[in-house]
Structure formats: C-alpha cells, structure tokens
C-alpha cells in the first residue's frame, strides 16, 4: 500500500487517529501514560487489594483485618488464606436473598420506568420545535439537582402523616394512614423517580431518528395507528429500550441511598448489606468478599453484555 493510500485509508475509518501517525515515540507514550497510570493506581489496584482482604480474617486491630503474608521466624513466608468469608456468604441466607432481591427490585423498577418513560420519549420526539427543546430541558434538569434531596422529597410525601395520606384522609378515602414509607413500594417509586431521565433520553435519541414516512406508509396500507406502532415504531426502538433499561437497571442494583431512606428494615439490597457490613459491623473482610461477589455476579456480566453489544453495532 502506498503512503497516500495509507493516509486515505486511515482518514476514512472513523477515529483512526491522526495522532497515531504523527505523534510517535516518547511524547505519545507520555500522553497515554498519564490517564493510564491514574486509572491503574486508583481503579485497578484497589480491586486487587479488595480481593486480597477478602481472604483475611476480622481482627480487633487497626486496620481491622489479619495479614495474609507473614514472615514466620523471619525465614520463610507464611501465607494464610481464609476462605471462611466466602463460605459465610453462602451459609448465611441474608446475602443470597439480598442479591436476588436487588435483582428483583431493579428489574421491576426498570420495567415501571420503561412503561412511564416510553410514552414521554415518544411524546417529546413527536412534539414541534421550540417545545421539543423545552421538554428535553425539563427531563434533564432534575438530574442536575441533588440526588439525595430528590430522594428526601419523597419522605415528606409518603410518610404516615405525609402529603398523600393527609390528602386521602381529608377526602375520606381512607380512615387510617396507608403504610407507604419504609416499604418496597417506596423503593420502587424512589428508583423510578431518580433514574427516569436516564430512561427517557436514550429512548428519545432513538425515536427522534425514526422516519415518519414509515408510519405514513403503514397507515396507507390500512394499519390502525396502534397496530402501526406495534409493528413499526416498537421494533425499531428496541436499541433505545435496551440502552435506557441498562442505564436504570445498573445503578439500581447496587443502590444504597434509596433503600436506606425509603425502604424498610426488611428491604434487603446488596448495596445496603455491604454498607452495613462495613460501617456497622466494621467487618472489612466480609464486606470485601461481598464486593468481590458483586463484581463477579453483577459487574462482569454487565460489562460482557455491553462489550458484546458494541461489537454487534460495529458489524
């Protein structure tokens, strides 16, 4: 391949990178090294340490865990690996239950967010121009305000003498306040409320690109609007639905703040269990084992799925 062809080829491919050709040697390596070193030290290394400590035992010490490597009699290295933390995760049903319950709560919340967010995204995509931007702005704005405070707002609405119960009692619908706060329902509301923008935005980005001519064609061929929606719009919007659902599901599974503030004592979620293991029981090795289990059962599958998806998109 001639030099010219090579250049043409590289500019044709998206993101081929002019810096790949022009900046070579020490300068290029240094530029890569800066973010690389940061992420290596502050993102990758910590997991190795968590992995190590998950094999340690709880000890009344500072920091509160036993050393894995000890020089016994200063001659040979003694390695103590405690597998008890992992066994503990399976022996005590609370961990398996919390993991399954997290998946359940995240899945149901994601479904509600999809059912609520889809018509919103469709409505925004079909709105006329100055309105469309205003509506989009209104979807994004809550995201920029404090997450903690948005969750806090629901305490005043859901509690026993809160706004919903006061209103229903004033209207005479109920005589006794409904238990809403500190239930799973409150957790669903909190998650849907917090992550709804993440559902609407990718859906909107997908729906906005649809060619309305397709729907007109379906109408010309005698399809009723709802049937045209089911056969044309819905299948085309599948990538947007997957993207939005992942953006809600992923943070919801590991959520701590929402189940802690809105959920009850029996609302088990894995993020909350890890928090309590660490802050209340001060058991760092078990907390580390929970983190490693979460990583393997949750984060790795999600990353593999995303990797697989981006591969598919490239093809």
């Amino acid at each position: 391949m001639s030099e010219l062809e090579a250049v043409g080829h590289e500019t044709a491919g998206r993101g081929s990178g002019w810096l790949a050709r022009k900046a070579r040697g020490a300068g290029r390596g240094l530029v890569i090294a800066i973010p690389y070193a940061w992420l290596f030290l502050f993102f990758l290394t910590p997991f190795l340490i968590v992995f190590k400590i998950s094999f340690a035992e709880y000890a009344l010490a500072q920091p509160p865990y036993t050393a894995l490597f000890e020089f016994a009699e200063e001659t040979y290295l003694k390695v103590t690996l405690a597998l008890s933390n992992y066994q503990f995760l399976f022996d005590d049903p609370i961990y398996v239950l919390a993991y399954l319950n997290s998946l359940k709560i995240a899945a149901i919340s994601t479904l509600i967010a999809l059912l609520l967010g889809y018509p919103m995204a469709l409505g925004i995509a079909r709105a006329r121009q100055p309105w469309r931007n205003v509506l989009l702005f209104l979807v994004v704005l809550p995201f920029w305000t404090s997450f903690l405070i948005r969750v806090y707002a629901w305490i005043g609405i859901l509690k026993n003498n809160g706004l919903i119960n006061n209103a229903l009692m004033a209207l005479g619908v109920i005589d006794q306040p409904l238990a809403l706060l500190n239930t799973d329902i409150a957790v669903y509301i909190g998650i849907v409320y917090s992550y709804l923008p993440f559902m609407v935005l990718p859906l909107y980005a997908n729906l906005e690109k649809h060619d309305t001519a397709l729907l007109e064609a379906a109408a010309d061929l005698g399809r009723k609007p709802f049937s045209a929606f089911l056969t044309v719009t819905l299948p085309l919007s599948l990538p947007g639905m997957v993207a939005g659902s992942l953006l809600v599901f992923i943070p919801a599974v590991g959520e701590f703040v929402i189940p802690d503030l809105l959920g009850g004592a029996d609302t088990l979620m894995i993020g909350k269990v890890l928090w309590y293991e660490f802050f209340n029981n001060r058991d760092w090795p078990v907390a580390s084992a929970v983190a490693i289990a979460m990583l393997i059962l949750l984060v790795v599958p999600i990353m593999l799925f995303q990797h697989h998806q981006s591969r598919q998109e490239e093809n």
């Binding site: 993102f43 290394t45 910590p46 590991g254 890890l274 907390a287 580390s288 949750l298 990353m303 995303q306």
Partner: peptide, 26 residues
C-alpha cells in the same frame, strides 16, 4: 485502557468506595 475507562460508569458506588478506602489504608 478502554475497560478501565468504561468500568467506573457501571461500578456500584459501594464497591468503588470500599476499594478506594482499602487502597488508601494500604
């Protein structure tokens, strides 16, 4: 590199927090 750049986006906060604390202690 691309894994380390995209992983923080899907990492549960409790794991990031715990792992960084253990790094700082170590």
């Amino acid at each position: 590199f691309s894994g380390m750049i995209s992983a923080p986006l899907v990492m549960p906060e409790v794991i990031t927090g715990l792992s960084l604390l253990l790094l700082f202690v170590a």
